[in-house]
Simulated scan of single mutants.
Amino acid sequence: MTLDVGILGYRFMGVAHSNALARLPMFFPDAPDVNRDVLVGRDEDAVTAAADRLGFDRIATDWRDVVDDVDVFYNLGPNHVHREPSVAALEADTAVFCEKPLAPTRSDAESMAAAAADSTAQSGTAFNYRFVPAIQYARNLVEDGVLGDIRHFRGRYLQDWLVDPDAPWSWRNDAEMAGSGALGDLGAHTVDLARFLLSDVAGDVERVSGHLRTFTDERPVKGGEETRPVTVDDAYSAQVGFENGAMGTLEGSRVADGHKNAHTIEIEGTKGALKFDLERLNELQLLTEGDRGFQRVLVTDQDDPYVEQWWPPGHALGWEHAVVHENYEFLTAVADGGSFAPSFEDGLAAQRVLDAVQRSDERGEWVQVD
């Protein structure tokens, strides 16, 4: 069986997922056969050029012409375009893979999760960091009790691409299109990793106290002299409480000077601790009971998750490989009729936490995650 794939979006994530589809038959021979069928974008000239470069058979300028005409629909458009095409595809029983955050608002995410529950088709949310081998190794350590009872979770995601107040305005700076700024763009990843790593042993995030801040109120429009208002946060922070009583802190910023893509996770328990940094994604820092300090663990052995598909031990993997892994797992689930996580329900669970952080900031008090 060959799966015909349609992709909405041809820039950053469109390229990332197209690259993953091309890599699958080279490194994952048991992956289902995939045909890069149609690439979707509003600008006919631009999408035509992208389709030729990324190896698609044809193009479309309206997603409505595609969602019931392919086996799998990848929704990689801006946040405000996530709900309508995804729901339409699921109603046509077309499998949907949607970029994170699942939606700009909680209500949109709820309607998407409901559509997924009502559809016979597979759905997935693109939280690709779950598929970094070191993160999967960390999860196994936590679930095997190596760290003991979990007491602390610390997640930070820091970038600096908006430090300059003259950096141009984009849809990511607009609340109507993005929903939120650093909170949804970066915080969604951190919340999902907290759930992925800890939910089986510490439960979900139960309550939050959040703080959002916008440092630059308007930005210039690229190629012109006008400016547009920034209506989302540049940075956020939150204290969180887990169901088992563990404490957590979350932080994200797109104006953290000197940080390019620094997603760091720290977990401490009664018997040990671990640290992970996305900028060194082949490594874990691990402290186990009786150790005097953290030890560096290189997660590139042949028996580490996914590594046997790639290179000999010690040959580092990169960011793109996690995208290949998630595509392998999702498309295999589509072809075999199996389950896939992170699902739309996982995307909604993360959105509920983000929504609670926003509500907490507005109210100036702790709030429960509904």
Rank of each mutant, 00 (worst) to 15 (best):
P85W: 01
P101N: 05
R23Y: 11
S86E: 11
M26C: 02
I59Y: 03
R11K: 13
D4Q: 13
A89L: 07
R83P: 00
A16G: 06
P32Q: 13
R23T: 15
L8H: 05
V40S: 05
R11W: 11
D65V: 09
V96Y: 00
M13N: 05
L39N: 09
M26Y: 03
A46L: 14
G77K: 01
A20R: 04
A49W: 01
D69A: 11
D65K: 12
R83S: 01
R53P: 02
K100Q: 06
V47G: 06
D37S: 15
G9V: 01
I59L: 08
V5T: 11
G55K: 08
S18Y: 03
E44W: 02
D33P: 05
F97K: 01
V87L: 02
R11G: 04
N75S: 11
D33A: 15
H82L: 07
H82V: 03
P29T: 14
V47S: 09
N35F: 05
P101G: 01
D45V: 15
A88G: 13
F28V: 12
G77A: 15
K100N: 07
F56V: 10
D62R: 09
C98Y: 00
P29W: 12
W63C: 01
R53V: 13
Y74V: 14
A88S: 14
C98P: 01
A95D: 11
R23A: 15
R42Y: 10
C98K: 00
A16V: 13
V96T: 03
A89T: 03
F97H: 08
A92I: 13
D52Q: 15
D68I: 10
F56W: 07
V67R: 02
D93Y: 04
A51K: 07
T94N: 05
T48D: 12
D33Y: 00
A22V: 09
W63L: 06
S86G: 06
